[in-house]
Design a protein around this nucleic acid. Structure first.
Lengths: 200, 200
DNA sequence: CCTTAGGACATACCGCCGGTACGTACTCGT
DNA sequence: ACGAGTACGTACCGGCGGTATGTCCTAAGG
């Protein structure tokens, strides 16, 4: 008979999750440096003992929050892309959806802004490889395979597109007129993409 | 008779400069959070008393370092652009020179990566307006005035180009083969720029 | 059923670091 | 010459990340 998961293990997982959620909230609102562990555990209604039982420290807690935000973002993004269509349509859908992903304050703050300085740029790149950036690049690779665009240097183009996308999203995020900002960002992006599109 | 600058004032300015230089070095190497004030004043061969006499705190010291790095970068950049030529040539020169600016580790780390989280994104934008980003945008505006490119949304396009540029520079900065990376970044950039170039 | 080993926390405490308070020497104008 | 203000140095405080240790509870073994 399959080993049943104990009630106690459920509780444990629950408090761990509460810690991650609390950390995500506070890091998003006030940033990593300005958020104390005391504030995090208070919000999660536990003590530092619990925190250090589940995580090795503040950094590890941040990475857990980072991974959760990234995982959700990736799910949202790949769902939008997987819904068939030509490679070109998929790319445009992907752009649109990634902008939406970036509009999440948690994604903006944790993944884009804080992660490179908190985790270190090296670990950040490594992590992004498995998440959002990986998707962006794979979409770009599909476009090349399909002959939609010339053979640009994939890695470099993907990274710069990635940067443009998050920058665009940030513009939208703190624009006074989001509708107008979105429209402008999209036209700018389309222009850029047209630049790498194969002449026909 | 013109008031002569006292020797003591010279000393004062010198120690202030030493603090800024020390801070720039250490922040560049280890980042803001991992750099203690004790380490900074030790390297500058003064005490915290001197530091807090000249600056209101760690943040203010960071901003002083930021401003110095930015000022030098701006000088380097505008010198390259001012050397005549058509708006289009000036733009390409500017791109090339800005990449060079971004290759400075201090610029990369302080201005691009740390500043948004240390100073807060709002103050960072405000500062960039007077520095590098201001130049990028003015170059773009010249291109539009000269009719070289269609009327894209200036602010948005400039920001996204700015992001692409710094991303490209970062790729070059930590590439195993900088020559090759530079070439790839440039072709990618040219493609993007061609995308907004007016059809003719 | 009793024992016991270990997981899941809570509590108390330490050391570092940013910031403050205060003291002191030197200099500059009068 | 002398008060005043500048340019520091010294001593100390509080908060925060991290650690060490204790306690309770549960689940597995005899």
């Amino acid at each position: 008979m399959a080993m049943m998961r104990s009630r106690r293990a459920d509780y444990s997982e629950s408090t761990k999750q509460a810690l991650v959620d609390s950390a995500t909230d506070l890091f998003t609102k006030n940033g990593y440096a300005a958020t104390s562990l005391d504030a995090i555990v208070k919000r999660a209604r536990v003590t530092k003992g619990a925190l250090y039982h589940h995580f090795s420290g503040k950094q590890a807690l941040f990475e857990a929050a980072f991974n959760q935000v990234e995982t959700r973002a990736m799910a949202q993004l790949s769902k939008a892309i997987d819904s068939a269509g030509s490679p070109w349509e998929r790319a445009l859908d992907g752009v649109q959806e990634y902008i939406r992903v970036c509009l999440d304050p948690a994604y903006q703050r944790l993944v884009i802004r804080e992660a490179p300085v908190v985790m270190g740029i090296e670990r950040w790149r490594e992590a992004e490889e498995h998440f959002s950036f990986g998707i962006v690049r794979s979409v770009l690779e599909r476009l090349i395979e399909a002959g939609e665009i010339g053979d640009v240097p994939v890695e470099v183009t993907a990274r710069m597109m990635f940067a443009s996308l998050s920058a665009g999203a940030q513009i939208i995020a703190d624009a006074s007129d989001p509708k107008k900002a979105s429209a402008e960002v999209f036209t700018a992006l389309i222009h850029m993409i047209e630049g790498i599109r194969r002449d026909r």
